[in-house]
């Protein structure tokens, strides 16, 4: 790569585009953070700085509801993302590494089906379906529904990645007497990692953010963060929602920072 100043990887204008992208992503969040500090009942009028909405999140009348909702949301998102990413990885292996077969196009259609049906239709249909098989609505129904509709979001980046990996690596390993299973776990999986991580993250944020389907299949008394937040804003968006959002951002940033340093120390070992 010693080509002096001429960097083959760099394209002019890509850095400004990336910066623009980040500005668009984060500018509205700056609004969220600023208004979480508003000493007013309204998000549209500014009445000075105060931390009272943060206190409200922990001690206010809704604190218990939000605590349970946050717990439900995160456990569901983690489980749903893990299961759907596993299913999607297996499916992608069959689709990309399984040769030609009759049901390939049909399988692709089935995998992308949750994407193509408007959410409200899946919601009503799933509710009718759950009721007709006598599946009591609650935590489990949300989880099952989330696993199902997260699959295409996990599948797309994983399969895109796998299509970019020539199978010569696995073939070489098998020529050296690796079993198929070993070729899969020792060769293909590590090469697939960025795709799998991307798929996992997409499934995670899709599950964390879902409102429509969750609202229909959740059953009495089980709330997730989106349903609790949508519920709260019906009486007007109060700064406590902004405070919750800001804290979620803070948690995610802390987790990313920790994982960054952990992986860094892993690499140096």
């Amino acid at each position: 790569m010693a080509r002096g100043k001429y960097d083959i990887k760099a394209f002019p204008g890509f850095l400004p585009m990336t910066i623009l992208c980040l500005v668009i992503l984060y500018a509205p969040l700056a609004v969220v953070t600023i208004y979480s500090l508003n000493d007013s009942n309204s998000i549209t009028n500014w009445e000075g700085v105060s931390f009272r909405w943060y206190a409200d999140v922990f001690t206010g009348p809704e604190s218990e509801k939000f605590k349970i909702a946050a717990w439900n949301s995160f456990t569901i998102a983690i489980i749903a993302a893990t299961v759907s990413t596993t299913i999607a990885t297996l499916a992608a292996t069959a689709m990309v590494r399984g040769g030609r077969f009759k049901l390939r196009t049909v399988s692709f259609g089935l995998i992308s089906l949750p994407l193509m049906v408007p959410e409200i239709v899946t919601a009503v249909a799933t509710l009718i379906f759950f009721n007709s098989i006598g599946f009591t609505r609650g935590y489990l129904t949300i989880l099952v529904a989330h696993i199902a509709f997260c699959i295409p979001f996990a599948y797309m980046p994983i399969s895109a990645r796998m299509q970019g990996i020539e199978d010569t690596y696995e073939q070489a390993a098998m020529d050296l007497y690796a079993t198929k299973r070993q070729a899969f776990t020792k060769i293909l999986m590590p090469l697939m990692l960025p795709g799998i991580i991307s798929g996992y993250i997409l499934a995670f944020i899709i599950s964390l953010d879902d409102f429509i389907i969750t609202n229909f299949v959740k059953g009495a008394g089980v709330e997730t963060l989106p349903t609790a937040i949508f519920g709260s804003v019906k009486q007007g968006i109060k700064p406590n929602i902004m405070a919750i959002s800001t804290m979620l951002l803070a948690v995610s940033i802390i987790m990313v920072t920790i994982s960054y340093f952990v992986s860094k120390s892993d690499n140096t070992k």
């Binding site: 596993t86 299913i87 999607a88 297996l90 499916a91 292996t93 069959a94 689709m95 990309v96 590494r97 399984g98 040769g99 030609r100 077969f101 049901l103 390939r104 399988s107 089935l110 995998i111 089906l113 949750p114 049906v117 899946t122 249909a125 799933t126 009718i128 379906f129 099952v144 529904a145 696993i147 199902a148 509709f149 699959i151 796998m162 299509q163 990996i165 020539e166 199978d167 010569t168 696995e170 073939q171 098998m174 198929k180 070729a183 899969f184």
Partner: peptide, 30 residues
Amino acid sequence: GSAKSDTYADARTWLLLPAWAVLGIFILTP
């Protein structure tokens, strides 16, 4: 090198089964 590869052709039914089952029951049926 995508669909041409058939490294896991013999296992593809088992690999696809979880996806078929979950999506078949909870998305296709509705």
